[in-house]
Nucleic acid binder design. Structure first.
Length: 472
DNA sequence: CCAGGACGCGCG
DNA sequence: AAAGCGCGCGTCCTGG
């Protein structure tokens, strides 16, 4: 497969992109090495402790006896064999229902945190600074990649592991780490391609919520009994997989397994399994044929224009052997259907970030700011922010990322939006939380955390820790 | 003994 | 007709 620029604009994006990413590499980020070393020892002890506990288990005892000196907790082959499964994947292991599995999974997670993440901070940091490489020449998608360390896959989904790992990344003394991300950028860039009026309505009407609606449909849950967990499953086990070309059998399996592994229940406390049973979806095979119907509705009724576009882009590729990208590129060579459909979306979505990154970095340099870009994660920019520059920097980023870019690329026909997350002054990356527009009367910062204490809502300033009960 | 493949898992 | 896209890294394991 080959991919190349079709326009000078495309070429220039990569050229200037490489230079901007080189600046970011040079800037680097601060690492709390002392913390990393302590944490590494702590994790070693914790893992050893878990292994001691595991060795008291019946199955693990058998496992050790069978393999003797070859016995190894890290061997997936051994583990799968002992538990009579084809694969040692977590989702497979979880289905066994043996209580020892939780401990085995925890051991695996802690081991990964130690051996992959914390160890690499220590290995790659020089004098407390880390300089990950950001590449633009490695991927099939024309996204970026990142190595030594891979800053783009630092844990965030599991609270315990997130804390262990992200605690190591800290701002320069007196500064704040800020992350500005495009919200829903891939869905929006897809929409710029297919222009499905139903999706445009979804995106323009803030009262609508397709992830919630699809979750409701998949599990037959009425609106007033919905929970955020059920919505999460609709979004991540049906909607997104469908956009990437997944199909109902896989979706149904995932959605079905999630009911037990995530302990799903309705808002009124009724277990989801019970709820499905009373709606005649009590067995997997009934549930699967239900999801088949949901898939049919999704593509034939709800997003039929999107479906037509997918067919069109595939037909065009079959005729010409080419796929064109709005950001100024063409792909040719052998590709499977799902890859073809994805190509015009994934790359250009990243290119919006890259274009913005180039402008933001240039502005920071030209105006002599102390704030620096220190990283990039596909649809977000990570900054080390000098607090007196906070308001100005965020405003400039907002303007570039949501206004200037639309002027540059008129194919961006839907409204773009950013979200902002900040750490406290001197606070680690783990502590970053979303901020909203709200003025702090103490220090003049325009961005505050919206917090709750029981029924009481209040606002806290990341810069000066001031608390406001009535902002603005 | 080493290189490279397979697998698993972290992220968007 | 095929059956989720894109990455990097650590570990195990196989074949030469």
């Amino acid at each position: 497969m080959k991919i190349q620029p079709t326009t000078y604009d495309g070429y220039k994006l990569l050229h200037e992109g490489v230079l901007a990413l080189a600046d970011i590499e040079e800037n680097g980020m601060c690492i709390d090495i002392e913390y990393c070393k302590k944490q590494q020892n702590h994790l070693a002890r914790r893992i050893k402790h878990l292994e001691k506990k595991l060795l008291k288990d019946k199955t693990v005892k058998k496992w050790k006896k069978k393999y003797g000196s070859q016995f190894n907790f890290d061997s997936d082959t051994q583990m799968a064999k002992m538990f009579n499964v084809d694969s040692a994947k977590q989702e497979v292991m979880e289905q066994i229902g043996d209580p020892i599995i939780d401990t085995l999974i925890l051991r695996k997670r802690l081991s990964k945190a130690r051996n992959t993440y914390v160890a690499n901070y220590i290995r790659e940091a020089v004098d407390g600074m880390l300089h990950p490489f950001f590449h633009l020449h490695t991927t099939r998608s024309i996204r970026s990649s990142c190595s030594n360390i891979n800053f783009q896959n630092q844990p965030v989904r599991i609270e315990l592991i997130k804390k262990i790992v992200r605690r190591a990344v800290i701002p320069r003394p007196g500064n704040i780490i800020g992350e500005i991300d495009y919200s829903g950028q891939e869905v929006k860039v897809a929409t710029c391609n297919h222009k499905d009026p139903e999706m445009i309505k979804e995106l323009n009407d803030p009262s609508r919520d397709m992830h919630r609606d699809m979750a409701m449909m998949c599990y037959k849950v009425p609106k007033d009994l919905m929970t955020s967990k059920i919505r999460y499953c609709g979004k991540n086990k049906f909607v997104f997989p469908q956009f990437y070309g997944d199909y109902y059998v896989h979706n149904a399996t995932d959605l079905w397994n999630a009911i037990t592994t995530l302990n799903l229940e309705l808002k009124n406390g009724i277990p989801l399994h019970k709820h499905l049973k009373s709606n005649k979806l009590g067995t997997y095979s009934k549930f699967e044929s239900h999801i088949k119907k949901v898939e049919k509705y999704f593509w034939e009724d709800k997003f039929s224009v999107y479906a037509d576009w997918k067919q069109q882009i595939w037909d065009d590729y079959c005729d010409t052997g080419q796929v064109f990208l709005y950001s100024g590129f063409v792909c040719s060579g052998y590709m499977e259907r799902n890859k073809v459909i994805n190509m015009p979306i994934q790359g250009p979505a990243f290119h919006c970030l890259l274009w913005s990154l180039i402008k933001i970095n240039k502005w920071l340099k030209e105006t002599g700011k102390q704030t620096k870009v220190i990283g990039q994660i596909h649809d977000s920019i990570v900054l080390d922010i000098y607090p007196p520059e906070l308001n100005e920097v965020i405003e400039k980023c907002r303007k570039i990322m949501t206004e200037d870019i639309v002027t540059h690329w008129p194919w961006l026909i839907v409204q773009l939006k950013i979200d902002v997350e900040l750490t406290p002054v001197d606070g680690s990356w783990y502590l970053k939380e979303e901020v909203k527009r709200a003025d702090c009367h103490e220090c003049g910062s325009s961005w505050m955390w919206q917090k709750e204490d029981g029924d009481e809502e209040y606002w806290e300033c990341p810069v000066c820790e001031n608390i406001e009960t009535v902002p603005f």
